[in-house]
């Protein structure tokens, strides 16, 4: 059977949910005739028509706001940010309005906001961002970040079915580079808030997600080969809700943890995870929790600068060695 790319998996997941549930519809810039800049929604306009695949003006705030209103009334909108960097234009709507709606007034707002995020593609400062930390801090938003084609599909389907607002950050570097066999049957559903052991190991754990999972697997391979180290890679898949139990369980096996993410360090997700480990499992640690993240600068365009600012597999290898030697 043909392999399904990460990108096709997202499209399949959306299409299956649109087939299954007539309340699901799409909103975004250039998602119809063009199929989006990366073609994630290609063919969906033809298949579902212009009332369910709506090309909008360049208005991120209105896209999210309109989705919220429609969601209150029982529809299930899926919004595309053409690049996730422009989610910043909808920040007020997402954080002040959408995130608070249920708590403030019992308003159900089952919408999904998705879009291409991430670097390693020479996109420069405004086409490379990983904005999870900006939303992590706002109660009321669920955050998911798939690393594999299977999870890309299973998580978009669960996100659409979820009764709360979900931000779905897909990684553009993975779109066509990652693929696997995805049988149509049984249906793929990945629950929100559940991590996955991407590689089992017993010397130390790398906690990570999205494209960084692949860097961690590469590092683990190398450490196995060169140092005889057995590295466990835990792919979080969801950042909110966070699978604390999986993190603790892995830590109890390995006693050493590295947290790796592509986003910048200060105020990043790794700090939150480290704090939870401290609270939940300090006694199990044989070494300080370490993190490898991007340096705290806007992401530069020139290849050597981007490669330097973003974490690479060799940074993970170095940090793992340090932890193993502790």
């Amino acid at each position: 059977m043909a392999e399904t790319t990460y990108l096709e998996a997202i499209r399949q997941g959306i299409a299956e949910e649109m087939e299954r549930d007539p309340r699901v519809f799409l909103l975004g810039e250039d998602i119809g005739a063009l199929g989006g800049p990366f073609r994630v929604t290609e063919g969906l306009l033809d298949r579902f028509g212009p009332t369910r695949v709506i090309d909008t003006p360049v208005s991120e705030l209105a896209i999210v706001g309109a989705a919220a209103g429609a969601a209150h009334m029982g529809l299930r909108p899926v919004c595309e940010m053409q690049f996730i960097d422009f989610i910043a234009c909808a920040y007020d709507m997402i954080t002040n309005y959408v995130a608070t709606a249920r708590y403030r007034g019992g308003l159900s707002t089952p919408l999904v906001i998705r879009g291409p995020s991430g670097g390693y593609v020479r996109g420069g400062p405004f086409h490379s961002q990983n904005p999870e930390a900006a939303f992590l801090h706002t109660p009321g938003l669920k955050l998911v970040c798939p690393a594999t084609a299977r999870d890309a599909k299973g998580l978009i389907k669960s996100a659409i079915r979820d009764d709360d607002p979900v931000l779905y950050f897909e990684h553009k570097y993975l779109y066509r580079r990652v693929k696997e066999d995805l049988p149509a049957d049984p249906e793929i559903l990945v629950p929100l808030g559940s991590a996955r052991v991407a590689r089992a190991g017993h010397h130390l754990t790398v906690v990570t997600w999205s494209a960084m999972v692949w860097k961690a697997l590469e590092a683990a391979e190398r450490l196995d080969r060169e140092d005889g180290l057995s590295v466990e890679v835990l792919d979080l898949r969801s950042l909110v809700p966070l699978d604390d139990a999986a993190i603790v369980a892995s830590l109890q096996r390995t006693n050493r943890v590295l947290i790796a993410h592509e986003d910048t360090r200060t105020g990043g997700m790794a700090g939150e995870i480290a704090a939870r480990i401290n609270e939940l499992a300090f006694e199990w640690l044989d070494a300080p929790v370490r993190r490898v993240c991007a340096h705290d600068v806007p992401l530069p365009y020139a290849p050597p600068l981007e490669d330097y600012i973003l974490p690479q597999a060799e940074d993970l290898v170095a940090a793992c060695r340090w932890l193993a030697n502790y």
Partner: peptide, 12 residues
């Protein structure tokens, strides 16, 4: 040449 990596951290 491209810029040297040493330049990447300054100027925030």
């Amino acid at each position: 040449p491209f810029p040297a990596i040493g330049t990447a951290l300054s100027g925030v």
